[in-house]
Each structure stands twice: as C-alpha cells, then as structure tokens.
Simulated assay, not measured.
Amino acid sequence: MTDIRPKTLFLYVQNLLGIGHLRRAAAVAQAAVADGFEVHFVSGGMPVPHLDIGGAILHQLPPVRAVDSLFKVLADESGQEIDDAWRAVRRDTLLDLFEEIRPDILFTELFPFGRRQMRFELLPLLDRAKAAPWQPKIVSSMRDILVTKPRPDRNREIVETVDRYYDMVLIHGDEAVISLADTFPMYDELTPPVRYTGYVLNPIDMAGDGTGDGTGEVVVSAGGGAVGGDIMRAVARLRPELPYADRTWRFVTGPHMPDDAAREIESHAGPGVIVERSRPDLAAIISRAFLSISQAGYNTLAEVLTAGTASVVIPYEGGVETEQRVRADLLAQRGRLAVVQENALSHDALTLAMQQAVAGRDTGISGIDLDGAAGTARILSELLEPA
C-alpha cells in the first residue's frame, strides 16, 4: 500500500515587538491542521508562553526582536544587537529546515509588505523555493491594513518581490471594510491574485455557563503590552474618577510590558482592581466583560467584534505605526466602538467614550467576515488543486 503524503504548509512568522502577528498565524495554523494540512510553524520571534498552534509542529528559530517601535535595531534573546555572523547562522538554519520539510506551500506572514529587516534570510528562502524541483506554491499574507510607506522606492520593491516570487497574496480582512488598494498605492501593479480571507480570530473558549473572570467587569488590556504601557498607566491613574468605578476593573498588562510600567499600574490597584501580567484566555474574559478598554490591534478588535462586548479603543500611534488608527476609525463607523485618540486621552474624553460604548452595546456586528482562519485554510487547499 502506498503512503499518501499529507499536504504540507511551511508557515513563517516573525514577531518583532508585539504578539499580534504570532497569534494570527497561530489561528491560521490551527485552521490549516483542521483542513488536513501538516503545518510546520516556523517562528523567528521571542517565544510566547501558552501559544496554541493546535496540532502544528513548532520550529523555533534563534529568536530576534526589535529594541523599540522604530524597528531599525534588532537584538537577540540576550539583548545583543545581531550581526552578520548571527544572520548567516539563522539563514542557514531556515534554509536547512525548508529542505528537510519540502513543503507544498511556503507561506510568509507579512513579508514582503513588511518585515524588510528579514530580507537577509527570506530572499534566500524564496530563491530556494523558486528553484525547488517539487515547485511549492508561495503565498504572502498580511493583516487588513498596511502601514503606509512614504518612500515610492520601498513600494516598488514590494511589487517587484511579489511579482517575482509569489503565487498569491492573502489579506486577512474584509474587502467590504477596507481594500488593500486603500493603503497600498501600487496595488494595481501586483500581478498575482489577491484574495481576502476575512478577519482571523483566535478561537474563544466559551465553555461553561457564561460566568467566570471578566463577568460584568471593565477589562483593560494592551495585547502583548510592549507598547501599551503609557495608555494603561493613564487609565489606571484616571480610574477612580471614571464611570463604572464601582465595578471590578481588571488590568491585563501583557507579557512584554516593561516592568516599570507594570509596577506603576499595580501601584494603583486598590479594592476592586485586579492586575495580571498575562491571561491566555483573555479573549474569553473580554467576551464576558461589561466594557473593554484596549488598544486597536487587529486581534483584540476582531475578538471584541465577534463577542459583542462594548468597547473603547485607544489606537497606538507611536513610531511609524498608522494601522491601529485607520482600523479603529473604520470599524467605529460600522459598530459600537468608541475611539479616543492617544494624544487626547483625558478624563473627559474617556468618560464620554465609555458612556457612548455602553449605550451602543449590542450582541455583535453584522456585515463583516470574521471567519478568516477557515477562509485562509480553504484558499490554501484550493491553491493545491489541479488546474
């Protein structure tokens, strides 16, 4: 009897500062496994505890992170800036892994629309894949909104890389909400097909009777926490004078929040205030909350939208980031999100937003595709079907 080799997915993801990319990729991995793929989850960032990749096989590359929100300097796990020797070792590790796995699909999360810092290993990987005798399909994926690139030469580089190497581009969003053409000025020059998967959600465990941590609470969170310290500290200081201060407030700082910021938030924790570093079940906690206050990251907003929790979002706008503000404003027009600008965060602004969010709460949002993990797996399977 001849063994039938399962369809194989080589999923490369590099988180540099937060954990949003990693969590989105993990949800895709779970859905692909459920669709019959053998998934090799190749992670290049700092490990994140309790990351659920389902039945995927984890391959942890020597980890690297950005030292700040400008993403220009990369450091290894000991905090040392990486050099060419380090890059060569990691490149060779990645190439050897690719040759060992011989995947049917090479999937690069965000690149080449982002992660330009990783060209030292990704361009050789793409060259190897194009030359591979088994001819794997090559797919790029990205979130719903591209961080605006002001330099035309960088946009030209993206187009040339996509057209040279890729068979398909996947957008983890809903074209009815925002199109890649809205944030990428050279969209019309992309040659491979562009497909929209829907928003990718991490599965929310809603087992039980609907009670538990978060029930009736005001939950304040900042994703991984790497860039959420200023916002959460401000909310913690304002909390005693804000609406609903008589409810339980739960601050989940995130595993990557700097220690000084986390300690200051803890210093404001009086009666009725809970401060936690990390909760793997944060999505379920938010789904049970009376009100969520958070940044406007992709994963958090997708989870808030599907749960129907009243939500105030304070988009992060530091460094070169623009996507949180764009996403928040677009989704505020479609649902019950209330937006407070980071540079306008005050008692009055937050009070008004909280009251608006609670007044407009409902049981979900209609008209947005929130089935993006399964949609991604379905499109990948279709890509392998005979023409």
Rank of each mutant, 00 (worst) to 15 (best):
D230E: 12
V227T: 05
R336V: 03
I19N: 02
E321Y: 13
F37T: 12
F184I: 09
R334V: 06
A27F: 05
A26C: 09
E160C: 02
G36E: 12
D127E: 14
G20I: 09
P193D: 15
R128L: 14
Q356G: 00
P62Q: 10
R325M: 15
N15A: 06
F71L: 13
R23S: 10
Y199D: 04
V194F: 11
G212P: 09
G272P: 05
D163K: 08
V177G: 01
S366L: 08
A131I: 02
A377T: 14
T306N: 14
I204E: 10
P192L: 12
V89C: 03
R5Q: 12
Y187P: 00
R288P: 04
Y165W: 06
K7N: 14
S311L: 09
V162G: 00
F98W: 07
F290N: 06
L11Y: 13
L301N: 02
H256V: 05
V312Y: 09
V33P: 03
S381Q: 15
D163P: 00
A181T: 11
D153M: 04
I365T: 11
R250S: 10
L380F: 13
I286L: 15
F251H: 03
T191N: 12
V339Y: 05
D96G: 11
Y244I: 04
G364D: 06
R233H: 02
W249I: 03
G224I: 01
A332P: 09
R233V: 13
I265P: 00
Q30G: 11
R65S: 12
T8E: 14
E121I: 00
G228V: 02
V42F: 09
A25G: 14
P6W: 14
D104N: 14
